[in-house]
Simulated assay, not measured.
Amino acid sequence: MMKLELSKVPRELKVILELLKDQEEEQLAEKSINLFHKLDWSVFVNLCVHHRVYPLIYPRLKELPSTIVPVDILSFFERKFKNNTFHMLYLSSVMEELSRNLLDEKIRVLFLKGPVIAHDLYGDLSMRTSSDLDFLVPLDKLVQAETVLQRMGFVKDEYIKTILGDWKWRHHHFTYFHPDKKIKAEIHWRLHPGPGREPGFEHLWMNKRRSSLSESPLFSLGKEDLFSFLVKHGGRHGWSRLRWLTDIQRILKQDVNWKTAEGLLHSFHSLKEGKQAVSLAAHLLDASIPAGIDVKVDAGRELKSAQSAIFYLENKINLHTSPLPEEISSYHAAYLFSLMCFEQKFLHLASFLFPFPEDAETLPLPLKYHSLYYILHPFLWTWRKAVKETGYLKGQKS
């Protein structure tokens, strides 16, 4: 089988990948002396935290001979593991409260990630990290759902700039933060940023599952919709955190109707991300590919797509860093474009013809005249670009 080129991936990350593979304790112990020889433990720890996989790594380190892992390193992971367990339990209680309040108001809600995913894919809340609660509601219930959040004490982060209602398709969630609970909640009306096709809420609700995590009603995506969501989400982020890839590793072992799942990927233009996800999980984590998935991991196209994500592992990229370095930003834009089908590329390019919120900042107009931005947009965009380039050239000269 042809393999991915991993020569630029840090050795410490390769050790993490080895620990994340499904293998017996005896197998790992046999490799441990060579695997951990002259390991830079500070880099190893930093990467485990960056990739949010330390809850999976800690139990593996405990299995190793006591002479392998320094005591202070094991103690660090033990503290992180315990703190994460408490956090996930607390997050679960807030999630239950949130679900109960929304359902009491006749607002249907689907939880996308967080504790429901940890319980569903790992069978244990402590084995996965989660920093916030992501949930989906119908668009026509969005305002009502926001009122529920505010009543619970959540405060909206007004970071989204919008014009002419473009928030409905350019964006996919609003962010709220609870100052006392120290918990972030993201209320979705779409699964992913637009423009582009994705399953509607009615489809997702029809295929929902009730989580066994709670006695009170707690609903999450159906298995096939969850797989489609995970591959699209991970692909959109370049698989820059290994936690997203271990989610794929886990769901590949579950009872999923893979024919239906592949049909969903095809219908909503996510086949490239699906094949990329399976290929990465197979190459990096030795994940077994279910018989129902039509992916040739050593095929040229699949291998090339998987290889494009290795850049994010080589450089320990955090896409939430603002602003992103120019090199990273340019690579990511080209990477995302490469995953698009023809229709997605057309919609993506066409979206640039629609006015941007920056147009209103460049030339403020009264709200009743905002429709003029459809005409003014190309001129305002050209003006901003010229000013930016002129400023850059001046900076170069100085």
Rank of each mutant, 00 (worst) to 15 (best):
N46E: 14
I310S: 00
F342Y: 13
K272H: 07
H188M: 06
E224T: 05
K82N: 12
V116P: 04
V295F: 01
I16L: 14
T382N: 12
F354Y: 14
F219H: 10
R108Y: 10
K388Y: 14
S305F: 06
L324K: 06
W258G: 00
D72F: 11
P179R: 06
P323I: 06
A333C: 12
G165T: 07
K304W: 10
M127C: 02
K208G: 03
L280E: 00
D40M: 01
L252N: 02
A360Y: 05
V116C: 05
K141G: 05
S92A: 10
F229E: 01
H320R: 10
R170W: 11
I163W: 05
Q254K: 14
N84R: 03
H87N: 10
T382R: 11
E12W: 04
L285E: 04
F311L: 06
D298Q: 07
L319G: 03
L61C: 09
Y58T: 03
F219M: 09
K345M: 09
S212Y: 12
G263Y: 01
E314A: 06
L365Y: 13
L149I: 08
E97A: 11
F229A: 03
A291Y: 00
E314C: 04
L149A: 03
L89S: 12
R151S: 11
L213P: 08
M88W: 06
K275H: 11
